[in-house]
Structure formats: structure tokens, C-alpha cells
Design a protein around this nucleic acid. Structure first.
Lengths: 212, 212
DNA sequence: TTTAATCTGTACCAAAAGGTACAGTTATGG
DNA sequence: CCATAACTGTACCTTTTGGTACAGATTAAA
């Protein structure tokens, strides 16, 4: 690992004698993320990435350092922008836990079937299996964040009586999260909407019993 | 795709003028499978594979044709030998559905935590996302086979009163299968046995209510 | 034992991988 | 308007990739 010219650049930006970068770093990162998202780390070549990012090699290595560093940034960017569930607003939890969770699964199934895309964190978890600790850290943080969002919904549901209070809310949140990823794997194997909806229904029937 | 010397070889073997192959094809395939299993398709180089298989390039291309063909065979081999659940014997279903499913999850969690391995079909599903139809076919067949095995256990459990009959057994089988893969993804992200066991418990509590 | 077919490993190959060097250009502070 | 540092893209580099060619060894039938 060499000393990073990128960080130096970040630090000294806007001091003196610094030209503005001509391309939009965030946009380039976003495009790179799309490539990694669909092809995985090994599956994405520098050629693929540079084409999607619409920049040359010089600019790339000055701005991002290496393919791996770009991937780490792309993974974080995914986690921050594409997780299907936002941290619930402080002010209000407008709709019921039931509706919130169903909406989550609906979005998930839509993405799985229509776009044929799988959460990048899940892909990364299987591609790296803990062999890269930086990747593992980002993935773990992202999945924990997802679990926390689901936990908040469940606590809310237990508070207003939608969800039985006997069950440990943390256990339920992890259970939902596991179903979330299970649906994506099965959907990747065979994109059949009915089956995935059936799984979501069955999963939710555990915590929201009053359902057909 | 060129005409395959391998099939010709298979056909004419034991006819005349054929030397026996000096290495054990099955053993080589098995070793290759282990490499693909842990590294994925793109992540496994020919060097990795040949080293693990302990054969030279000449023998390899004569016997297997190409990296991709080897992968397809390895994937099938995995499906046939490593799926954690055997097709239940005709003669007897010795233990209860409860125990069968719990044993399945125990094995799964053990593999996930101790060996840090994820079902190769699941990995393949995410790595290829349907971009290779031959891969998709093997994966789909394998997962369907897993679902069928689980279905048989569930039907058995519904027959002997362990599992409520109101629920569609097919839906339950798919639900269990989804949990199966969800556990592996979450275990790949963070190998915490307690959490995975909690997910398994919660999943099973839907169909086997009489549980602490 | 001869003969022929095919197995094995080595040497080789073109293409693609990720990454570096650098000439030319351009924005910025003085 | 000048000087200069940093940006841009091209050309180049080394290593690795998956795959082929082929010489020599080896087996099995006649």
C-alpha cells in the first residue's frame, strides 16, 4: 500500500494552485457502482468501469487510487443510497408496521424480478466471504443498518399492537432480514414473482397473524 | 463451440486402442469443485484449478474441454453430493419433521460458521444472475430438488400432525428454502452462530408452534 | 514384439488484466 | 499576462489470463 495521493489531494483542495476536477466524481462513482453491482468485483474489468465512468486512466487513478479502493467506495455508496429502506423519519411513522414491511418486500421483489438485481451487499458477502476485511466491514455495517431499520418498524408495530409483544424484536428483525436475502437468492435462481410473493406472505404471517 | 473430443472419447472408451486415463477424473472434478466453491467462477484461475486437480494442461483440456465446461460439471457435482439433505429413503421416514428440519438447519449453520462456506448454487445464482442459461438451469434444478426434499418432510409432518394442515405445503417448503439461503448470506456477512440459530428458531416456530 | 493410438507434461501464444509514465493542456494565484 | 501546479488522455508496461501445439511416454491389441 503506497501513500495515497488522493487523501493529500482532498486535504489541500481549495488551498492554492488547485484546478477543479473536470468530471463529476460522484457521478463517476455512481456509474462505477452500477457496473460492480451487476458484474461483481472480479467480473468488472477496468475497461468496463472506465467506459461507464466516462473518464480516462489518468483521471481514474488520480481520483480513486485503484480498482479495489473504487470498489470499497462503490459499496459504501450503494449502502448509502440503494438500500430500499430509509431510516424512518424522527417526526412520524406514518403508516403501519404491516404496510411498511409489505412495502419493503414489494420493492424488493420488484427489483429482483424487473431489474434482475440483487442487493450489492449480499453479492459482496458471497463473493468475498470475509476474505477482505474492509469489504466485510462495509457489508456488515450495511446489513446491520438494514436490520436496525426493520427493528424500528417492528418496535413501532409492537407498540401499537400490530405485532405480538412476546417475541424478541431483535430476533424478528434478523428473521425478516434473512428472508429479505433468501428471496433475492431464490429470485436470482428463478425469477418467478408468485413464488417470491408467497415467501414474503409466509414470512410476514408469523408476525402479522390476521392475514388471509 | 467446437465439436467435443470429450464426448467422442466417452463414447469410444473400452472399444479398442484406448489407453486408460491415468488420473481419477472424479477426484479431479471433486478438487476443482472445491476451488470453484470457495472462489467462485471468475475468482478461480486455471492455475488454481490445475494445482488443486494435480494434472497438467494437456490432460485437462482433453478431459474437460474448457474452464466453463468444468464449472458446469463442478456445479452439477456439487448439487449431487453436497446439498445437506438427501432425498428421503422410500422405506422409512425415521425421525420427525421437526427433527429433520432442525437437523438441516444445524448442518447448514455448522457449515456456514465453521467452514465459512456457502451453498455453491446460491453463489452461482448471484454471480451469474441468469446471464448464463446453462448455469441457471443447473442452479434452478438444484434448488428445486432442495425444495422438494423439504416438501416431503413437511408433507410427512402434516400427515402425522406435527405441522398444521391449513398451510400450503409448497409455500412452506419455499419459505424454508428462502430462510436457508438467507441464513447463509447473513452468515457470510457476519459469522455469528447465535444470530443464525435465532433466525432458524424463528423460521421454524411458524410451522412448529410448540416451541419455547 | 510390433504398431498404433492416445495419454501426459512442457513450451508457447495472443489477448486482457491492472497499473504507470509522461507529454500536452488548462485553470489559478500573483 | 505569467508561472506553475495539477488535470487529462495516450502510450506503454508487466503479469496473468485461458487456451493450443506438440514431442515423448505408455498402454493395449494383434
Amino acid at each position: 500500500m503506497k501513500s495515497s495521493p488522493f487523501n493529500l489531494y482532498q486535504l489541500e483542495r481549495n488551498n492554492c494552485f488547485m484546478r477543479q476536477r473536470e468530471f463529476d466524481t460522484q457521478k463517476a462513482l455512481h456509474n462505477a457502482m452500477e457496473v460492480f453491482w451487476s458484474k461483481g468485483y472480479k467480473g468488472a474489468s477496468m475497461k468496463d468501469l472506465l467506459t461507464a465512468m466516462r473518464i480516462g486512466k489518468g483521471s481514474f487513478y488520480a481520483a480513486f487510487g485503484s480498482k479495489r479502493e473504487l470498489y470499497l467506495q462503490a459499496l459504501s455508496h450503494f449502502r448509502d443510497t440503494k438500500m430500499l429502506i430509509k431510516q424512518p423519519k424522527r417526526k412520524a411513522m406514518p403508516i403501519s408496521a404491516h404496510e411498511s414491511l409489505r412495502e419493503l418486500f414489494n420493492q424488493l421483489i420488484g427489483r429482483t424480478i424487473n431489474q434482475r438485481k440483487v442487493c450489492m451487499l449480499g453479492k459482496a458477502a458471497l463473493e468475498f466471504r470475509g476474505s477482505d476485511s474492509a469489504v466485510a466491514e462495509i457489508v456488515d455495517a450495511g446489513i446491520t443498518q438494514l436490520e436496525d431499520s426493520i427493528l424500528k418498524i417492528i418496535l413501532n408495530g409492537q407498540g401499537n399492537g400490530e405485532i405480538p409483544k412476546e417475541r424478541d424484536p431483535h430476533a424478528l428483525a434478523r428473521y425478516i432480514t434473512a428472508s429479505f436475502y433468501g428471496i433475492q437468492v431464490l429470485g436470482g435462481a428463478k425469477p418467478c414473482r408468485e413464488h417470491l410473493e408467497e415467501i414474503a406472505d409466509t414470512t410476514l404471517s408469523l408476525i402479522i397473524p390476521n392475514r388471509h
